[in-house]
Amino acid sequence: MPALTTHILDLTHGQPASGVEVDVYFVKTESEKRIIAQSVTNRDGRVDKPLVAEADFEEGEYELLYYIGDYFGRKEVSAGSPPFLNRVAVRVSLSASAAHYHIPLLISPWGYQVYRGS
């Protein structure tokens, strides 16, 4: 049962990143993508439900867009003006044969790391 979830950890403050907006797009071609989900992380830095549930899942390329500039602005952390990292886009290719995809994002105002979690 394929699904897509995420969580965000704030490395600057050593805590989950709550209140981060996350948009998810299905990428048809380089010039054509459609938005399929919009969410905001909860106090644990997670979304309350899968970004893409089993019923809506289709094999292909997805783009997750994380609005981290807004998050660090609310935390009053200066990352320059405009912020060095305003939005982080992560593209992943997902296969219907996998049971679950979890995409953790570790952030600071100056860098990020992403990986496939469990």
Score class of each variant (00 low, 15 high):
Met1Glu: 05
Leu4Asn: 08
Leu4Arg: 09
Leu4Gln: 08
Thr5His: 04
Thr6Ala: 07
His7Ser: 12
His7Cys: 14
Leu9Tyr: 15
Asp10Ile: 14
Leu11Cys: 09
Leu11Thr: 14
His13Ala: 14
Gly14Lys: 13
Gly14Gln: 15
Pro16Leu: 06
Pro16Tyr: 05
Ser18Phe: 01
Ser18Arg: 01
Val20His: 06
Val20Trp: 09
Glu21Asp: 09
Phe26His: 10
Phe26Met: 06
Val27Trp: 00
Val27His: 02
Lys28Val: 15
Lys28Asn: 12
Thr29Tyr: 02
Ser31Cys: 11
Glu32Trp: 10
Arg34Trp: 12
Arg34Val: 15
Ile35Phe: 04
Ile35Lys: 06
Ile36Val: 13
Ile36Lys: 03
Ile36Glu: 04
Ala37Ile: 04
Ser39Gln: 10
Thr41Glu: 05
Thr41Ala: 03
Thr41Pro: 13
Asn42Leu: 13
Arg43Gly: 03
Arg43His: 07
Arg43Lys: 09
Arg43Pro: 02
Arg43Ala: 12
Asp44Met: 00
Asp44Tyr: 01
Asp44Gln: 00
Gly45Leu: 13
Arg46Ala: 06
Val47Lys: 03
Val47Cys: 03
Val47Trp: 00
Val47Ala: 03
Val47Leu: 02
Asp48Tyr: 05
Pro50Cys: 01
Leu51Pro: 04
Leu51Glu: 12
Glu54Cys: 01
Ala55His: 12
Ala55Ser: 07
Asp56Pro: 02
Asp56Trp: 05
Asp56Gly: 07
Phe57Tyr: 13
Phe57Cys: 06
Phe57Ala: 08
Glu58Ser: 10
Glu59His: 00
Glu59Asp: 02
Glu59Phe: 01
Gly60Arg: 03
Gly60Lys: 04
Gly60Ala: 06
Tyr62His: 00
Tyr62Pro: 03
Leu64Ala: 14
Leu64Ser: 13
Leu64Lys: 12
Leu64Thr: 12
Leu65Ser: 13
Leu65Tyr: 10
Leu65Glu: 11
Tyr67Ser: 13
Tyr67Gly: 08
Tyr67Val: 07
Ile68Asn: 09
Gly69Cys: 08
Tyr71Trp: 07
Gly73Ile: 11
Gly73Phe: 14
Gly73Ser: 15
Arg74Asp: 12
Lys75Ile: 05
Lys75Gly: 10
Glu76Pro: 07
Val77His: 03
Val77Asp: 00
Gly80Asp: 04
Gly80Tyr: 08
Ser81Trp: 13
Pro82Glu: 03
Phe84Arg: 15
Phe84Trp: 15
Phe84Gly: 04
Phe84Glu: 14
Asn86Cys: 04
Asn86Trp: 09
Val90Met: 05
Val90Phe: 09
Val90Glu: 11
Arg91His: 13
Ser93Pro: 00
Leu94Pro: 14
Leu94Trp: 10
Leu94Ile: 08
Leu94Thr: 14
Ser95Gln: 08
Ala96His: 01
Ser97Arg: 11
Ala98Asp: 11
Ala99Glu: 10
His100Gln: 05
Tyr101Met: 12
Tyr101Lys: 05
His102Cys: 11
His102Leu: 12
Leu105Thr: 10
Leu106Asp: 15
Leu106Asn: 14
Leu106Gln: 14
Leu106Gly: 12
Ile107Phe: 07
Ile107Gln: 09
Gly111Lys: 02
Tyr112Lys: 02
Tyr112Cys: 04
Gln113Glu: 01
Val114Arg: 02
Val114Asp: 05
Tyr115Val: 04
Gly117His: 02
Gly117Glu: 07
Gly117Val: 06
